[in-house]
């Protein structure tokens, strides 16, 4: 599980990190030995061993800067950035809507680029700077896009909203918010089943045309 202490610096390898890798190497050697033994023996021993080996090596170290906080984590390689945020760091503002990169609810910024956090493994973002919806406002002061979404009612149920907002900020920063048509095109990766699309466009246009810094 994740080490949730931000700003905590490592003091050395901990069991479960590099220590686990060393154990794995030893066990791999043992498995190689099994491979040379007759089939039935391998099957009997292997089925028990496989899982134990897998469990031992499944944590790898990961450093992330999330919303300005530094995290030193250990995660399974198969953990997506989305699941890391939601299930381990409890940053549940980032939403899961499909897990296939088709709906955009999980949109976050990685080093300033919008990405679907369900389509990236957390370990692939080692050392990167992640911004989620929780990191967009400056304290109590909402980001202009957040203000505009409230004013123009750019949502109903609110579930796709964090992804819409993260995408909207990026859409303006990328220079893809120059017309209604362009906004619609570049916001089409974020599905809103409640159908608040025209209000989302209005919110983005207001911020873009207002020349506010995003």
């Amino acid at each position: 599980m994740a080490d949730q202490n931000p700003d905590q610096h490592p003091t050395g390898p901990k069991p479960g990190h590099n220590g686990a890798r060393r154990t794995f190497l030893k066990q791999s050697t043992a498995l190689t030995a099994f491979a040379l033994t007759p089939g039935p023996v391998l099957k009997a021993a292997g089925s028990a061993w496989d899982e134990k080996v897998a469990a031992a090596i499944e944590q790898v170290p990961l450093r992330l800067d999330i919303n300005g906080k530094k995290y030193k984590l250990s995660v399974e390689p198969r953990t997506t950035l989305l699941d890391l945020l939601r299930e381990q760091l409890h940053l549940t503002g980032t939403k899961k809507g499909c897990d296939y990169g088709q709906c955009g609810a999980c949109t976050v910024h990685v080093d300033g680029q919008r990405i679907n956090s369900c389509l990236t493994l957390a370990v692939m973002q080692d050392g990167k700077k992640v911004t989620t919806i929780e990191g967009l406002a400056e304290g109590e002061k909402l980001h202009p896009i957040q203000e505009a979404f409230i004013k123009h009612d750019g949502f109903q149920c609110g579930y796709c909203t964090p992804g819409q907002i993260m995408s909207a900020v990026a859409c303006i920063r990328e220079g893809h918010a120059n017309s209604e048509g362009e906004i619609r095109e570049y916001m089409s990766g974020n599905i809103c089943r409640c159908g608040a699309y025209p209000n989302i466009v209005a919110a983005i246009q207001e911020v873009k045309n207002g020349g506010q810094k995003v």
């Binding site: 989620t132 406002a137 009612d153 609110g158 907002i165």
Partner: peptide, 17 residues
Amino acid sequence: NRVDGRLKVTGGARYSA
């Protein structure tokens, strides 16, 4: 404006999971 708008735009609205 919605009374829960701020929670919805900041990720503060908590859904079942």
